[in-house]
Design a protein around this nucleic acid. Structure first.
Lengths: 243, 243
DNA sequence: CGCTCCCTTGAATATTCTCAACTTTGGTGG
DNA sequence: CCACCAAAGTTGAGAATATTCAAGGGAGCG
């Protein structure tokens, strides 16, 4: 597995995705829009800034008129079921799209976890525009393929791993994002609360704490503050049992 | 929720997907290729017939040169992790694509659960062809969006529901496929073994049996044979707690 | 008839959840 | 700078859920 931030400080509209059909050993395995494609696409969108933990960007069930693209920050996609249990459907990082609807309505809500900047694109416009720009559309198709794989990977994690291993995978995944991981000192700044981690890996906040302690006892994580963790990435990943 | 088979006996290359941005109340909410698009695309592919429970169609880790399209039958996408635990990543039904790689290699293996016919498309050819057929590419993008949503829905199921409810959702989902569900008598022919169900909903075969008995005691399912289940679909779905 | 493969059941064990109390953290205002 | 508060994190104990291992049925097939 490669640890790489797809985007650090480049201009907008990079896609967080690896090319499924090219090995990451060769260069050019991430999917990039050309500068011209970028500026063109941006004309369709509307800039949006959202403060951390403010009102949701959109709510589950709302009519979906826009597709969202995250430029900076972290957004959590949530779904609430009837008994009130919440499940984090995905964490969105810079370079991700979110806001896929079903039957014209958002299937989950989106909340800014940190301060964010995003673009929203009217779906009607996208539908008209994309077929006329097949190379851009192709890159979006690759990005979508990438996201399917990511979701499937998360399914594996949820279905086959115990809570401690799920937490290990979550922490390793966070390290792929330069904004939150100091590569020098191997220190991760956890972007979300224990409760949100719990929603993300399908458990309770208390169990997250206990799992964290288990990782600490194994020497895979050292807790500086609850939010600052020094961690042994490769051992942590090996422990999870994935490849 | 709508219960509908996207494909029963039409010719090949229908996409199992609902249009994300159109309500299913209006007609035309499923994504269809035009007849001309269909024949055109089929020229790129190679027909494939696979017997139930025969050797895998492809194996996790193998070099991925083709993308697969399932025309008839049921295929299970599986991922095996180091400790030997298997997780079913997805069940593929007629109208689904499978075989998404990472780094050029299959991320999971695919096994025919029933007798199947499928097409395989060389990825190189698709990459060259699709940008020249933007309307087809757009439909594939819609299909991919649909599949992302399905995977996210399954994440919700895995993360927020107990085994009995996960089984309920699985059974209801199977009813969406006319080949296996007799709408008249409300009888489902379960397509996969208890063990495979277990892999699919992230538990053990024994627990599947027990969960089945729980559903039976609640009167939501009546077991005719282990494979023939008469079920109360809407109550079953209501019980699961999803919308 | 007997074999195999699956499904089912039981009992002991392990994991995780829930609820309640306690502690730390990070901000706010004196 | 310190005292205080609210929010978040941590810990413990008992209950609920799921796993594992072992053994007992049942259907299909040679």
């Amino acid at each position: 597995m490669k640890f790489r931030a797809a985007r650090t400080d480049q201009p907008s509209l990079a896609l967080r995705a690896e090319h499924p059909w090219q090995s990451s050993d060769q260069n050019g395995s991430t999917i990039e829009l050309l500068p011209s494609e970028r500026t063109e696409l941006l004309l369709l969108g509307e800039l949006l800034t959202v403060k951390a933990h403010s009102a949701p960007i959109f709510m589950q069930g709302e009519r979906a008129k826009h597709l969202y693209y995250l430029d900076e920050g972290v957004v959590q996609g949530r779904h609430t079921i009837r008994n009130g249990v919440r499940q984090s459907v995905a964490l969105f990082w810079p370079g991700d799209f979110f806001g896929l609807p079903r039957d014209g309505c958002f299937f989950n809500s989106a909340e800014a976890v940190t301060n964010c900047t995003a673009y929203k694109f009217p779906i009607k416009d996208l539908e008209k525009y994309l077929p006329r720009r097949p190379r851009i559309q192709q890159k979006l198709l690759l990005k979508a393929s990438h996201d399917i794989r990511l979701a499937q990977r998360r399914l594996i994690v949820m279905g086959a791993l115990d809570v401690t291993r799920r937490l290990a995978v979550f922490l390793v995944d966070c390290c792929g994002h330069a904004q939150h991981f100091d590569d020098e000192n191997q220190v991760l700044t956890v972007p979300i609360s224990r409760h949100d981690i719990a929603d993300h890996i399908g458990t309770s906040a208390e169990t997250v704490t206990r799992a964290m302690k288990t990782l600490e006892k194994k020497g895979l994580v050292r807790r500086i503050t609850p939010w600052q963790l020094e961690l042994r990435m490769s051992e942590l990943f090996a422990f999870s049992g994935l490849d």
